[in-house]
Amino acid sequence: MSQHSRHYPQLNSLGDVVRWVVDELGALCPSPERLRQYFKNPQDSAFRDVHYHVEELKCPICNAERDAWSDSGRAPAQ
């Protein structure tokens, strides 16, 4: 099995393509700086867009950053 076929996402429409880019490549992830500020103060209304991205969309990249940040007490990867 080729490298591509092993990983290839099932994309049947334009919407699938765009969502794949957003969901798996983190194209709309907030900057590391804003993400760190949000983790420190998730209730701050200045980070409503981040709240939606992290909590409602459950972005796996940002949530993995939060887990790592929580574990280490350090900033997310720059």
Partner: peptide, 18 residues
């Protein structure tokens, strides 16, 4: 330029102003 680049650039543009 890939779509992810454009969207990431869009994201940074939005973050420049509240």
């Amino acid at each position: 330029l890939l779509l992810s680049d454009v969207l990431a650039e869009f994201c940074r543009w939005c973050e420049k102003r509240p």
